[in-house]
Amino acid sequence: MRHTISVLVDNKPGVLARIAGLFSGRGFNIESLSVNETLDPTMSQMTIVTRGDDRVLEQITKQLNKLIDVIKVIDYEKGSENHIERELALIKVAVTEKCRAELLSIIEIFRCKVIDVGRSHYTVEVTGDENKLNAIIELLRPLGIREIVRSGRVTLQRETRVQ
């Protein structure tokens, strides 16, 4: 099962290497990763998407907690409603006279932005959860996608559980 794990760490050189080394050395897998400074510049927040059964996930969170530089670990179990998650993608898509209208309507529907316009390509910025990103990519694919970059996931706890 896939899990999103949020790891609060000391903002120090080498910490990412420790976390990455723990995953590779113990045979765990990182599917996506994002890291940045928190409000407190001495700490960084990592969001890691990983996969494994309950036993593996228990080990991952325990092993992460064991690292001296790790301050806090939260495992947001996939599918639970008490957290928000977002990813970002930049998609460079071909634009021709024939398909411009379709492209613009997809952009409209998905509430994304065109952030760069060229003679033959538009670059579209889209944020959302994984499903939304996958959906727009599928819709844009027939138009001709030249390049895609996707960020790692970021996650935050909801203030109250939404029923």
């Binding site: 080498g14 290497a17 420790r18 080394g21 723990l22 050395g25 001296i68």
Partner: peptide, 13 residues
């Protein structure tokens, strides 16, 4: 420090 990261409890430069 890089070499011993996986075989130390912690290390420092």
């Amino acid at each position: 420090v890089g070499i011993t990261r996986p075989c130390t409890k912690h290390n420092y430069l």
